Structures are given as structure tokens and as C-alpha cells.
Simulated scan of single mutants.
Amino acid sequence: MSSPPHIVLPWVVRRTRLPLLSMLCGYCRAESATTGEGRFRVNANGKLLDVWLLVRCVSCDRTSKLTVHERASVRSFDPAELHGYHVNDPDLVAARLLDPLLARRNHFTLNWTGAWRLDTPSAWPDEAWPVRVEVVFEDPVPVRPERLIAHGLGLSRNEALRRIKCDVPLRRPRSAGFTFTVLAEG
């Protein structure tokens, strides 16, 4: 027996801005910082380089540094990467900020609230059920699948849980793609 035909719809989770950093400010003790436009500071000491990502406290507006590279040999850098540090390349800022090793080394977490959006097709099929949806993440935005699905379908979380079948745990944050099937009402 074959499964009924279904339509596959793509959903894409996109970053709208860089996330805020949850870290303790050394001056005012607030717990939120931003990278602003994203700037690096590169300091040379002989043939060794230090590279920092500058962050600004949201409360007191003071600047702090996150260590990206410490006492690294100039020869160990890719020339394009080193140039990116000097010109404050936005893609390099995003790549470094989203690097979990940098977060662990500098004791911060990312606050993605308001920093992402879900792009869904405007037309939803009226007759073809079930509908299979493929969710793709352009950036590693951690979001709970149940909340993402409820938001995308415009349903309550309980209604969404009742009407879907998913191949991943729904109550754990994910930042990688997954698929789910939406069943007809009733």
C-alpha cells in the first residue's frame, strides 16, 4: 500500500541581525551586549598578533573586547582572513560571533530573541493533505521546533502538536534542518 500523495513546502529560518550577547558587563553588571556594526581590533607585537571583537554594553554603552586570537603568529593567518579583520568584514564578524568556541572561551551565550524570521510560502494548499514541510536553517538559530511550527502555521502549540508528525524531538532547541508532516484537521 502506498502513502497518499503530498506536497512538500520549504520553510527557511533566516537571521535578520546579529544576536545580542548574554554576558556580564564588567562596569555596570548588566547582562546584555551587542556587536553594533561589528568591529575588530588587531594588535601586533613583533610577529605575533592579537585579534579582538569589540562589543558594546547595551546599558552603559562601554566597549569590551572578546578574544578571537591571542599571540598568534602572523604566518598562521590566511591573508584573506587577516584582511577581513583589518577591514571589519561583516561576514567574518558573523562567522566569529556564531563560533561556539569563541563563546565558550569568552563566557557568553547568544540571545536570538528578535534576531531571526521564518520565511514560509504565501500559498498554502487547500486540498492536498498531508503536507510535508522541510525546514532549513541559514544560520544556527536555536529554536524549539514546536514553537517554530506553531508560529509558521498560525496555530496554538497544542493544536500544532496534535496535527503534526515530526522526525525530531519537538521540545528541544534545534539549529539544524528537519522535516515534519501536517495532517488534515479533524
Rank of each mutant, 00 (worst) to 15 (best):
E70Y: 12
H151E: 14
P142Y: 09
G154A: 13
L110W: 07
A150R: 06
R71F: 00
L118K: 11
D99E: 10
L97G: 07
W112P: 04
L92I: 12
P145C: 03
A150I: 10
L155F: 01
W112Y: 07
L97Q: 10
R132Q: 11
W112V: 10
S156R: 06
D99P: 03
H107W: 01
I164M: 06
L82Q: 15
D126A: 14
D89F: 02
H86L: 13
W116F: 09
P173R: 15
V136R: 01
P90Y: 02
A95K: 13
L153A: 14
D167M: 05
F108W: 03
D167A: 13
N106Q: 08
V133Q: 03
E134H: 09
S76V: 07
P100V: 02
R163D: 01
P142K: 06
S73Y: 09
F137G: 04
S122P: 00
L110Y: 12
N88V: 09
R162K: 12
D99K: 04
R96K: 15
R162T: 10
P169F: 08
L148V: 04
D126I: 10
P173N: 13
R75S: 14
L97C: 05
E138R: 01
E127Y: 10
L148C: 12
R171N: 14
S73Q: 13
S156I: 05
D167G: 08
R75D: 14
